[in-house]
């Protein structure tokens, strides 16, 4: 089973990387008012179904993939 985990800096958390990217995009002439830079993790896992995959992903996020103090996560599971 394939899954994608999106990790973002939480709302209200300073994201200096996003600010720097925004500044550069503005230099290129784009009217960009905000940029936040996160992380994409694509993975393939063994699971007995979407629910089992979801449970595993939740644990992966809380134990390693994200730091809940500063990051929020979303994940997507592809059935095929």
């Amino acid at each position: 089973m394939k899954a994608t985990v999106l990790v973002r800096p939480k709302d209200g958390i300073l994201d200096p990387q996003g600010e720097a990217v925004q500044g550069s995009l503005r230099k290129l002439g784009f009217a960009v008012s905000q940029v936040r830079v996160g992380r994409v993790i694509d993975l393939e896992l063994e699971a007995e179904g979407p629910n089992h995959a979801r449970m595993q992903l939740e644990r992966m996020c809380s134990e390693l993939l994200a730091n809940p103090l500063i990051e929020s996560v979303q994940f997507r599971i592809e059935d095929a």
């Binding site: 958390i13 300073l14 200096p16 990387q17 720097a20 730091n67 103090l69 500063i70």
Partner: peptide, 16 residues
Amino acid sequence: CEAKLLPGALRPNRQL
């Protein structure tokens, strides 16, 4: 901090 033996997290420096 990551091991939760201490409170908080260390983020990229403000000035990058």
